[in-house]
């Protein structure tokens, strides 16, 4: 199922209806935003929404009904009890001033950090899925290529740079810009200054 090109571009209300039809009650949050920009007040349209992980692939398919989805990137962060992933999609491209951002959020609990791959629907997502695996320690199920992309092979296997818990970067980095943690003054034993372990 793909929407006729004649019916494009879809308005934000039509996109909302589409999600209601495909997902029903599964949409946990839905927020529409409009901003006026410039002298003529052309609007920028942004949608923020969240779905449960069980309905995640259905939501991606719903976006793919509109157009071949343009995935800008996936951002993710450690929120304490869970990891939040946001898939930044864009639809209605090719129609001046009509493009709408759909920021699709999904929460993964810390005890089960898995999410299905979307590369079957959006082949271009492979780069960002590999990045999320190595930076957040999540597992993307059925990912075609699960090797590391950005981090070196020597980087510890169970530490992830964007996590704030015990699996994060704690103890691996020094905040040299922070005056409280700034280095010691140079002494005869330590002519370069800096922490002991740095010598």
């Amino acid at each position: 199922m793909m929407i006729d090109e004649e019916k494009l571009p879809l308005t934000m209300n039509q996109i909302e209806k589409l999600f209601q039809k495909v997902l029903g009650e599964a949409v946990v949050e839905f927020k529409k935003e409009k901003f006026k920009k410039g002298l003529k007040g052309r609007e920028m349209k942004v949608i923020w929404m969240r779905v449960e992980r069980e309905n995640f692939l259905d939501a991606i398919r719903a976006i793919a009904y509109v157009q071949i989805p343009h995935l800008s990137v996936t951002s993710g962060s450690d929120m304490g009890d869970f990891v939040e992933l946001i898939y930044h999609f864009h639809v209605n491209y090719g129609y001046p001033g009509e493009e709408t951002s759909i920021n699709l959020k999904v929460h993964l609990p810390k005890n089960d950090l898995t999410i299905p791959t979307i590369t079957e629907i959006v082949p271009g997502a492979i780069t960002t899925e590999r990045e999320k695996q190595e930076f957040l320690g999540i597992t993307v199920k059925n990912i075609p290529d699960s090797r590391r992309l950005w981090l070196d092979e020597n980087y510890p296997k169970n530490r992830y740079p964007w996590r704030w818990d015990e699996k994060g970067m704690e103890g691996m980095s020094r905040y040299i810009h922070d005056p409280k943690e700034s280095t010691q003054k140079p002494t005869s034993d330590n002519p370069r200054g800096g922490d002991e372990d740095e010598k």
Binding site: G38, K40, L71, P96, G97, E99
Partner: peptide
């Protein structure tokens, strides 16, 4: 399908240009 961007995909006939699609700053 690969979500390419910019002149790289416009050369293939894809109508994607953020300045026109989703105008920011004063592009609108």
């Amino acid at each position: 399908n690969l979500c390419g961007v910019g002149p790289t995909v416009r050369a293939s006939g894809v109508r994607k240009d953020v300045r026109i699609d989703q105008p920011y700053a004063a592009y609108g």
